[in-house]
């Protein structure tokens, strides 16, 4: 992918957010490079979802800036962000499929509404995206008929519909059994290799973080406490990071390939 700009794909500068009196994000600074997979790791309630919702402008900060390429998305009119928005796809924690529509209608909705493509083209593109996430044959199912993992895959197909440059995941494996969760991790790895998209994953699952990340950001109570490659994070001496890592000692040693193999053998 050629870039027509210098610097990081996403740059968060001094982001501060309050919900009422409570400070949720406290001077968050973060650079995410084009083409890298950044995992934002932290316990629940630390403001990970809030941060990712700011990146796609579902919330506006109390103060601070977020730059996507060179555009300050927090301080631009809604209509101008609409043009950028189509370059960003998001998979929500609950998959957020439209329950009154079939899987195919869900995935094709952005194409139908936002492009002038022919119906037949849209059909083909929808099938390609569903194929990509391993859901071919499920076009006419309703979301309620799918399992949790399949819903996530369908949500991912919809997020991919507009061929985004940035893909955001909020807790992609939350609420899934380990085998299904590993399947989603494998899918993220596949996308990362195939498309060189900029991927941001919010999670509290350490195993999956170390597996898919190029770099990891550790958050605690609304603050970024460490940023680095998985090895750097593992070697970090920051007490909070150590505490977080040690709370699940059995997942310390991670060999990506072996981890995937053991989990995918029994299913998928």
């Amino acid at each position: 992918m050629a870039h027509d700009f210098e610097g990081p794909m996403i740059r968060v500068v001094d982001l501060v957010t309050y919900y009422g009196e409570r400070r949720i994000l406290n001077r968050v600074n973060l650079d995410i490079q084009a083409g890298e997979t950044m995992v934002i790791l932290g316990g629940s309630g630390t403001g990970k979802s809030t941060l990712i919702r700011h990146i796609i402008r579902l919330e506006l900060p109390t103060s601070g800036h977020i730059f996507i390429k060179t555009h300050d998305i927090c301080h631009m009119p809604e209509e101008r962000f609409d043009l950028l928005r189509h370059k960003i796809g998001m998979l929500f924690q609950s998959a957020a499929l439209f329950n009154s529509m079939t899987i195919e209608e869900n995935v094709s909705l952005p194409l139908c509404e936002l492009t002038q493509l022919e119906d037949s083209t849209i059909r083909i593109m929808t099938r390609i995206k569903l194929d990509l996430v391993g859901l071919n044959g499920f076009e006419n199912y309703m979301p309620a008929q799918l399992s949790g993992g399949m819903k996530k895959r369908a949500g991912l197909a919809r997020a991919l519909a507009m061929d985004p440059e940035i893909l955001l995941f909020d807790e992609p494996s939350a609420g899934l059994d380990p085998v299904t969760a590993a399947g989603i991790d494998a899918l993220i790895l596949k996308l990362k290799r195939a498309f060189r998209m900029t991927i941001v994953v919010v999670t509290h699952e350490m195993a999956s973080a170390f597996l898919i990340a190029d770099r990891i950001t550790v958050m605690d109570r609304g603050e970024v406490i460490a940023v680095g490659t998985p090895d750097e994070i593992k070697a970090s001496t920051h007490p909070k990071v150590q505490q977080f890592l040690n709370r699940t000692p059995e997942e310390e040693a991670i060999d990506a390939q072996a981890y995937l193999r053991t989990l995918t053998q029994s299913g998928e």
Partner: peptide
């Protein structure tokens, strides 16, 4: 309300609809 709770409203907004 159900759409709001299940993040469908957010999903619409993210798509720019």
């Amino acid at each position: 309300g159900t759409m709001k709770v299940s993040e469908e409203i957010d999903a619409l907004e993210v798509m720019g609809l």
